[in-house]
């Protein structure tokens, strides 16, 4: 059994995001970076499979050198080695390009199972793993809250609105992971130390047979804005009946949340 886990390094969403002066990006100063939480669940799931029946786990990521730190955290959890698709700083790659690069990296590994988070919490693009599956012509299932492996097949619970599908996929397959599936382990110090020495290969787009042009982003962010930074702190006055009416109106008509 060989499992590829796709992970992304993202800013911690607990941070404050400020619009940069160019109004096309956010200020990155002071941001702390973490592994995207859904990817961490995917990694945990891979390691549980490894513990249950043995598996080689390769963690694959795309980005700059700082991604290595993120990949090492997965290795500290138990992944055996890593492949970083290194991209030049400043190159803007869209989901289409990322998926091509990752698909090429995954193909070289020929895993039996590819796991990834259902989305990365920075751009919330929610599409790269599905694209990788399609590009490699692999069966796939998204937003999975339960995963069982048996007889060369994966049986998954796939969350949908108000219910779930139970789907059986032949391996190799790509599965994206939802949060409730497990609790990622707290990394052990000896494993953090060991992870520093585990093999981590870096490949370039050229190595994967891709030109910068082929992966060019065709969905540029042309403007960003902060929706609202502070709480409204609006005390709704009047007698109970009026206040209640007004709050319901605000929730329904202004916020469109009710």
């Amino acid at each position: 059994m060989k499992i590829a886990v796709l992970v992304k390094r993202v800013p911690d969403t607990a941070s404050v995001f400020k619009v940069a002066p160019d109004e096309k990006s956010v200020v990155t100063d002071g941001l702390k970076y973490i592994i995207s939480p859904y990817d961490e669940h995917a990694a945990e799931e891979a390691i549980k499979i490894q513990e249950a029946g043995g598996a080689e786990i390769v963690v694959i990521s795309l980005g700059g050198d700082d991604c290595q730190e993120t990949m090492r955290t997965v290795m500290a959890m138990g992944a055996d080695r890593g492949v970083l698709v290194s991209v030049p700083a400043g190159l803007s790659i869209g989901a289409h390009g990322v998926a091509q690069a990752l698909a090429a990296a995954v193909k070289r590994e020929a895993p039996d199972l590819v796991l990834a988070g259902k989305q990365a919490v920075d751009d919330d693009a929610s599409q790269v793993p599905e694209r990788v599956a399609e590009l490699l012509d692999l069966p796939h299932a998204s937003v999975v809250s339960k995963l069982e492996l048996a007889d060369g097949k994966a049986l998954v619970d796939r969350e949908i609105e108000g219910g779930k599908y139970r789907i059986e996929l032949p391996l190799p397959a790509v599965v994206t992971i939802e949060k409730g599936i497990n609790t990622p382990r707290y990394p052990k110090l000896p494993n953090i130390m060991k992870a520093k020495k585990k093999p981590l290969d870096t490949v370039t787009l050229e190595d994967l047979g891709l030109s910068a042009d082929a992966v060019k982003n065709q969905a540029e962010v042309t403007k960003v804005a902060s929706p609202r930074t502070d709480r409204r702190n609006q005390i709704v006055g009047g007698d109970t009946a009026d206040a209640v009416k007004e709050v319901v109106r605000l929730l329904r008509d202004e916020e469109k949340a009710l």
Binding site: P11, V26, H96, D124, Q218, V221, V224, A225
Partner: peptide, 17 residues
């Protein structure tokens, strides 16, 4: 128009493809 960073930022994405 789509939210980024858990809804903390709203982005306009212009799609060329």
């Amino acid at each position: 128009k789509k939210p980024l960073y858990a809804g903390k930022v709203l982005a306009d994405v212009t799609i060329q493809s």
